[in-house]
Structures are given as structure tokens and as C-alpha cells.
Amino acid sequence: MSGEVYGTERPRKKRWGRRLLITLIVLLILLAGVLVALDRFAAGYAERMIGDRVSEQIADQKATSEKPDVTIEGVPFLTQVLDGNYERIRIKLANLSGPAGNNRTVRVGNLDVNADNVNAPLDTIRSGNGDIVAKTVTGTGVIDYPQLAELIGQPGLKLAERDGKLVGSAPVQALGQTFDVSGTAEVTVKEGVVQVRFSDVTAANLPNVPLIRNLINSYVQKLSVDLRVPELPLKLAVQKVEPTPDGLRFTAGADNVSLNAGGL
């Protein structure tokens, strides 16, 4: 009789233990799901807040773009909140367009911005008071060649990249003839302004006549252009420009930038 009693009690205890373990696992899974959802909700809120501030500054600069796409990298987000430091925040601006001086408008198809080493104290996130500051901000964008040729404003001008350099070609009328001239441009940045200066312009079968040479030299001067990239958000200033197959690629940067201040 005693053997039968013990034989029925032990299975009941094992079943109860398994149920308790399954219940605990289910609760842990649910808790993990809630934490993930809360983490993504908090990250989404912060991303929207930063995106709204960037949009405000773009509007203040009389520029336009599509809605900023903001991504706070690194998971979980909440541990970064508690620490008050974020490795990187990415901001993508599509179709940025703005004034570039002399009644001209410049379009940048995509501006990619990385804000690194961002300091955002928990009290700032909670109250909205204080600054969220990125130690460094870098941005890259491309001005395509058809647009650059349009800004230079010389009929028939075609631009391209060759061996890492900006080259151009265009037809020039002289003495009743048409000469296809071509040359290489030097592209530099001075005080945030992109300068394009052509030199070594040549043409096949070009007569060595002073009148024609002067005409070509005069044409070369017209190819020069000072291009101010639309005022960029987050205090970004153009630092470098290089020709690429898609267009002039510029790199901009700034230090110690507030990501949430109204004026950024």
C-alpha cells in the first residue's frame, strides 16, 4: 500500500514543477516582448523629436526636403538612455533643395548625416529641458553633373568624372566654325563655397590664331563658378568636394552640435 501512495505523489509534484517552469518561461517571454516594445517606442519618440527639429531648421533656412528619416543605432535603446550616451544617430534627408546665391537653387538628392558620440542626459529626455549634443556630425551629398552644368550656364556643356578629376567639353563657335573644346577643372572649397575653375582647355584642329585663343580664354572664364551648397542643417559646413561618377560629392562637418534645440 505504501508503495502505491508514493508512486502517485511523485508524478503530481513533477507535473506541478513542469507547469511552474512553463509559466515562468511564458512570463519571461511576455516581459521580454514588453521591454522590446517599450524600447522601440522610446526610440521612436526620440527619433521623431530630432526629426521635427531638423525639419524646423530646414524651413527656417528657406530650404525644402522630404521628412527626415532618423535612426538611433544600437540596441537596446533604453540602456543608452540610462547611460546618457549614444554611439550614433543617423539622419537621412531626401531631395534637399535650397538657395545657393545669385538667385540659384541647388538640389541634393540625398544628404546622409551621422551624429556620433551623442550625450543626452536622462533628465533631458524626460523633461525636454537641456541639450542633446553630438560631439561630431558629418554629412555627405552629391550634386549631379547635369545640374552643375545648368548652374554654370554655358550651352552644350557636358561634365563628367575621369580618373578622379572633373572634366568638361562643349562646342564653341569661332570664325564660322565649331570647335569641340575640352578641359579639366580644379574643384576646391573656400569658406564653405565650392569653387570650380577650368584650365588647360584645348580643341582639336584649333588654329593658333590670337583672336581664337583669346576667344577660348574668354570662354574658359565663363566656365568658372562659385557654388554655395544650400545651408545645411545641424551647422554642417562643407569641407571637401571630390568628383565621382554620379556628380560632385561633398563632405560637411561640425562639432558639438545640439540635436534638439530649436535653432540647432
Rank of each mutant, 00 (worst) to 15 (best):
S2K: 15
G3I: 15
Y6E: 11
G7K: 15
K14Q: 14
W16G: 12
W16H: 15
R18M: 12
L24P: 04
V26Q: 04
V34Q: 03
A37L: 10
A37W: 01
A37G: 07
A42W: 00
G44W: 00
I50R: 02
S55K: 12
Q57I: 10
Q57S: 09
A59V: 15
E66S: 10
P68C: 04
G74C: 01
G74F: 04
V75A: 10
Q80Y: 07
V81I: 07
G84P: 03
G84K: 03
Y86H: 07
R88M: 11
I89D: 00
I91L: 02
K92Y: 09
L96Y: 10
G101H: 06
N103Y: 15
R104A: 14
R104M: 13
R107P: 07
R107H: 13
G109F: 08
N114A: 12
N114E: 13
A115R: 04
A120H: 06
A120I: 04
R126D: 10
S127T: 12
D131L: 10
D131K: 12
I132V: 09
K135C: 06
T140M: 09
V142D: 12
L151N: 00
L157I: 05
A160F: 10
R162E: 12
D163F: 08
G164V: 07
K165V: 08
V167D: 05
S169I: 09
A174P: 00
A174C: 04
T178I: 09
D180W: 11
V181H: 04
V189M: 03
V189W: 06
G192T: 00
V194D: 00
F198H: 02
S199D: 12
V201F: 04
V201T: 09
A203G: 01
L206M: 07
V209A: 12
P210H: 02
L215R: 11
Q221N: 15
R228I: 05
P230C: 06
K235E: 14
L236K: 00
V238M: 01
K240M: 06
K240A: 06
E242C: 04
P243C: 05
D246S: 13
D246P: 10
T251V: 10
G253R: 03
A254G: 01
A254V: 04
N256T: 08
G262F: 08
G263C: 12
